[in-house]
Design a protein around this nucleic acid. Sequence first.
DNA 1: AACACGGGGAC
DNA 2: GTCCCAGTGTT
Length: 346
Amino acid sequence: MTITKTLTSWYSIHKRDLPWRNTTNPYYIWLSEIILQQTQIKQGLPYYEAFVNNYPTVFQLAKAKESQVLKLWQGLGYYSRARNLHATAKYVAYELHGEFPKNYKGLLKLKGVGDYTASAIASICFNENTAVLDGNVYRFLSRYFGINTPINTTNGFKTFKALAQEILDKNNPAEHNQAIMDFGSRQCMPTNPDCTVCPFKESCVAYNKSLVAALPVKLKAKKPVKKYFNFLVFISSSGQTILEKREEKGIWKNLYQFPLIETEKATHLNDFKSKLKTYPLLNGENYELILFNDTDIVHKLSHQHLHTKFWIVNLNKLPTSGIPIKNLRDYAVPVLIEKFIDDFNF
DNA sequence: AACACGGGGAC
DNA sequence: GTCCCAGTGTT
């Protein structure tokens, strides 16, 4: 029995019924693949439904404003995916007349489409023999073949990509690729897989050498840096507040937030008050300052831990142009801000 | 080659 | 707390 026959036999019983499994339309496959990058299916599924419903074709996505696309993406993270999604939709709609490239090489040129996504679309939509290599495939291959090369290195990528390509079913790459990913996700899972029911238990190197928990090998990530954020939540007597768009590159680009003052360490009421005396927006203004959260809210991201205070600034008239508080929810904001808006009773 | 980029969920 | 998730782009 070949690997691929065992995989597809397993897949015929255990495959999940997912909305993008019933189509080979590259627009829908592309949409699902971008949404699922570094994202579990359970988390991405409602976003896929929302995008399909709001933008049934690439032309409608192309016509949308980026702010609308980011609003629909709100909460999913890695927002460059949404910005690249929109840019690519415009490119496909207006430069390629709505037709996605029909092979790996062409797909790879699209913004937000890398080796994995190009391989997935090329195989699923166009039956091109390009093996996918995602977290699930890394895990299965490293265990089955007993390979301890770290997966998050250039050498690891080359090694596992070549192996994935070697075992790819050249007669049915679409089925093979989806089967191997589902298998990694549902049978050969990261922790405590039930290897006693695994169809590969006779030949799996990791299982037979008790290396399942040790594979795959992955180089350690850096520790996240701590940052100290102070958001100024302006509230005017006419019910307005101030939102700013994050224009600079980096985290949350093109999302909105309350005016932010970042400090080197945690602040307290009195030193923050004196700090505000040199803050341009509040220079010479009369206002009342109230700290919303007594203890810092710690928002944990992969690379940053954000220790956050929300300062309520009550005043008669805003020092600059603002927006009605009732319109706050029209703007795409980070989850940290969204949670505050939910918790604070405006 | 190393790093930045979100947020949720499992253990 | 640690690790992972249908990875990609930048430096």
